[in-house]
Design a protein around this nucleic acid. Sequence first.
DNA 1: CGGCTATTGCAACTCAAAGTTGCGATAGGG
DNA 2: CCCTATCGCAACTTTGAGTTGCAATAGCCG
Lengths: 196, 196
Amino acid sequence: MPTARPVVGRGAKVRAAVHAATLAELVDRGYAALTIENVAQRAGVHKTTVYRRWADRDALLVDALAEQMASDIPIPDTGALDTDLRELARSLVRTHTSPTGKALLAAMFSGAGGVPEIAAARRRVFDDRLERAAPVVARAVARGELAPDVDPAEVFKALAAPVYLRLLITGEAVDETTADHAARIALAAARAGVLG
Amino acid sequence: MPTARPVVGRGAKVRAAVHAATLAELVDRGYAALTIENVAQRAGVHKTTVYRRWADRDALLVDALAEQMASDIPIPDTGALDTDLRELARSLVRTHTSPTGKALLAAMFSGAGGVPEIAAARRRVFDDRLERAAPVVARAVARGELAPDVDPAEVFKALAAPVYLRLLITGEAVDETTADHAARIALAAARAGVLG
DNA sequence: CGGCTATTGCAACTCAAAGTTGCGATAGGG
DNA sequence: CCCTATCGCAACTTTGAGTTGCAATAGCCG
């Protein structure tokens, strides 16, 4: 049984070059233009080489994205809700402005939304953050900063929404200022009791 | 100069059937699967007929979308900010849950984001609403409901963000409840002074 | 009601690009 | 320095988009 051979030596360089070319091509030309031949050319590699290593462009794309999808982001605990939310928002922004994050969004928004693995990856990123929001809200309730009936998921959604609006609809720049702004909105809504 | 001939009789039926098939195909199969042949088959029409009437699938799609893109939505003026915002949000939701609105979003989110006319149509929908938000906020300021430095555009973005989050990211149902929820978030943020 | 014309259906075609294959060339580990 | 796995290359097959000429027909107009 061929258990994924080592991929060392020459193969490793090719693999890395093709992965990079895939994400680059995706970000600045879109999913529709993501053909094996384009990727191969950009990677400085012959198309047969790519065809021999990956079954189709979706497999290639999923592989390239999965490569560096490391999470391991700590749950913020600064002692106050406003700063916790700010950290949560900044972390979300960092994820989606990283090369991989940009590529993931580009994939979703330019046609790969139907590919199960891509959709799953997006859901994973989002749900991951949802989970991290729960303890933050729970602690805020314990401190008396929020009413007990506030829904942590709704808090995070209120925080994430402005970020995604910029990323997907308005196309405005997304940076720390955006994150802080989103955090303030979520905080105001939570305090006003509209996230129960 | 051929000024778009009448298109009556047999032609009108064909045209309507193809338009409907185009939007239907787009919504439940995506832009990638939107081929002239698929559309023709769904419309119960031969592909040559479609090819003779439209240059390519983008022209067809733009034509089908433009068909019913009537706006003419009044600016709400209920006498209070909260109800005005609620109307604004409900109107936005109605737009994006209508068949045409769904098709427009499907087009954007499944690959036609690069087509200039499609991107322009989406921008038009959004900017249209942005403009309608300005008087609403201005009146609220005049009534003393809001501080004078509140930015109308930011108010509308805060209101629209939760709606688009559901439409594009979480996939949860979008209805009047969603609209009212979004309106409350925007109101809380505006009152808290974080939208200046 | 019946003929006339524009439009459609159909089949066969062209054409471009995706994907495949066999073989000679070469990189790099041992 | 040699040996093997991997790559480059060119020619090939296949697939699906888009085209064309001609016969069939729908529907307007007298």
